[in-house]
């Protein structure tokens, strides 16, 4: 026999072998094996669900729990930024208000001994001012520069009331005087009286000027305040500028008032 024939015989033999089939319980066994696989997978998933990570435990059901600390930090930074930069002006204004309030509470007690027009209580101002103008003589008023302008700033209501009373005084005093014509050959007594009245009128005018100047200074200071609030300067600088401006304005007006007083005094002396 040749090799090919031998091979063909072997092939026939091999092909004649009966086909072996699987047992009846093959599929059942396979089912059982697969069934044991699936619970393992499920249990693995269950295990994973039961034991969450540290972030999941701390931050609950957030999907990307690792973002929570970063979010917290950023929120804290924003809060600090808001407090330090954005709320700075408000805090300064509040401080100013509290300072002024405390000063208002303290200073009236200290200055109760001094007898000046500004020391009168606001409620009693309208009545007292009229009485004072009636009782106290004009030359007795403090016109030598002792007028406290700082206090006048702190008590604008009083100043306004004083101004009103002064205006009333002027109305009562000026109108008749303007109408009265001084006749020739007037006696010395009458002249002295007239001079006194004139000096009183001058004093009233000075007081009016003072009050107007105070008001102007207050208005200018308010405007400056507003301008400063609008500008982006630091609170300490703003405070310094504000104080300087007030001081300057007050000094200028004091000088002007002093000059006017001096001129009045010179006139008196000359007369």
């Amino acid at each position: 026999m040749t090799g090919k024939e031998e091979n063909n015989e072997i092939r026939k033999l091999l092909r004649s072998l009966p086909a072996v089939k699987s047992g009846n319980d093959f599929l059942e066994k396979l089912d059982r094996k697969i069934a044991t696989l699936e619970p393992e997978r499920k249990s693995a998933k269950h295990f994973l669900k039961e034991k969450p990570g540290i972030f999941e435990r701390t931050f609950g059901g957030i999907k990307s729990a690792w973002l929570a600390p970063a979010l917290g930090l950023s929120a804290a930074v924003l809060f600090v930024f808001y407090i330090t930069f954005l709320n700075e002006d408000k805090i300064v204004n509040e401080q100013k208000i509290t300072n002024t309030k405390t000063e208002e509470k303290q200073e009236p007690k200290n200055t109760t001994g001094n007898t000046s027009t500004t020391e009168v209580s606001p409620s009693a101002v309208p009545e007292n001012s009229e009485k004072k103008t009636e009782n106290v003589k004009p030359h007795e008023k403090d016109i030598t520069g002792n007028f406290d302008y700082k206090e006048s700033e702190k008590f604008p209501a009083r100043v306004e009331q004083n101004n009103k009373s002064l205006d009333q005084d002027q109305a009562t005093t000026k109108k008749p005087k303007l109408n009265v014509a001084i006749p020739e050959g007037i006696t010395k007594d009458n002249e002295n009286k007239l001079n006194e009245e004139k000096s009183d009128n001058k004093n009233d005018e000075i007081n009016n000027q003072e009050s107007q100047m105070i008001e102007e200074s207050r208005a200018s200071s308010n405007e400056k305040k507003k301008m400063e609030d609008k500008s982006m300067k630091t609170p300490s600088e703003k405070m310094e500028e504000f104080e300087n401006s007030i001081q300057k304005s007050i000094m200028d007006k004091l000088n002007a008032v002093n000059k006017a007083n001096l001129e009045n005094l010179r006139d008196k002396v000359n007369k």
Binding site: L17, V20, S22, F26
Partner: peptide, 11 residues
């Protein structure tokens, strides 16, 4: 494939 595979594996 079960019978084919088992036949192959048995042989």
């Amino acid at each position: 494939y079960k019978d084919r595979l088992i036949n192959f594996l048995f042989r």
